[in-house]
């Protein structure tokens, strides 16, 4: 599927979202390179993003276990980012990510969500919305089963609603 661009608005803040659905990548390095390429082309990040996200994942891995599934949340320091965005990548095959709380363990992740942020505060609400929605029974399974840009967009919009109701 071609990359999908959409916008999410939460508490008056609008966040561009780039959806890369059904990516076929064989390694984290390849995944990061693809995300970097897409972000760089859209002027969202500096050329240093790639090394920044790789180094950050090495130092502070982001594989996060939600019980029935795991999701990677590769972070990057603000200095590599020009304009904030959220990248939602669904991989056709799961990749191992080291666990956030224990680098000696790995979690297989098919979903990787990249918070590409320029500051904390208001932008963090989107990361919060993501982690909150992923805690809802059935949300992850529903999300990864979606096949059309319309469905994916609607599901991500509904994700914000979950966060607002929970918050």
């Amino acid at each position: 599927m071609e990359p999908i661009e959409l916008e999410l608005t939460l508490n008056g803040v609008t966040m561009p979202v780039l959806v890369l659905w059904g990516l076929t990548v064989r390694s984290k390095e390849e995944l990061f390179a693809r995300v970097h390429e897409e972000l760089l082309r859209r002027g969202q990040v500096r050329p240093s993003y790639l090394e920044g996200v790789q180094e950050r994942e090495r130092q502070y891995p982001t594989g996060l276990d939600f019980g029935d599934f795991a999701v990677a949340l590769p972070h990057v320091d603000f200095e590599h980012v020009l304009r904030p965005a959220l990248v939602v990548a669904l991989l056709s095959e799961a990749l191992p990510f080291q666990a956030m709380d224990d680098p000696t363990r790995q979690h297989l992740c098919r979903l990787a969500i990249f918070p590409v942020l320029t500051s904390g505060d208001t932008q963090l609400a989107f990361l919060q919305a993501v982690t909150c929605a992923l805690q809802q029974p059935g949300f992850y399974t529903r999300l990864i089963s979606l096949q059309t840009p319309q469905e994916i967009s609607a599901c991500l919009q509904s994700m914000l609603q979950i966060a607002v109701n929970e918050g």
Partner: peptide, 13 residues
């Protein structure tokens, strides 16, 4: 957390 900004803020909230 890693940078003291993202996940730590969510966790603290």
């Amino acid at each position: 957390c890693g940078t003291g900004i993202a996940t730590s803020t969510l966790a603290a909230d």
